[in-house]
Amino acid sequence: MVKVNDRMRDIGEFIPAKDDDILICRCEEITKGEIRRAVHDGIFTMEEMRRYLRNGMGLCQGQTCGKLVKNIMAKELKISPLELEPETSRAPMRPIEMEIYAKDGGNV
């Protein structure tokens, strides 16, 4: 797992690439270049990346892009994707209208 101290590690300069404009997160429209650059800005964990760029925070909740983001980050950090901890999962697991969520009757 990536430790906080690992941020001292030198991962080199951000080098622009031809495919940086390709979308990775389809919902929030976050590109590969944005994710790569964010890693160089010091975002080393999946959890922080979601908060920083909002990737995986849209309607589908990272269903499609989760694995893609992980692989891009791992490549940039020069580590195996297995070393990156997956983002936190929490309820609600699917998007839900606030109107309905607020009506939660609790223990009926």
Binding site: R90, A91, P92, M93, R94, I96, I100, K103, G105
Partner: peptide
């Protein structure tokens, strides 16, 4: 029926139609 969460004591919150049930 969309299961929204699995909580301690094996309690589940589920969206059924227009409400959340436990």
């Amino acid at each position: 029926a969309i299961v929204l969460g699995l909580h301690p004591e094996k309690e589940l919150t589920i969206k059924v139609e227009e409400e959340v049930i436990h």
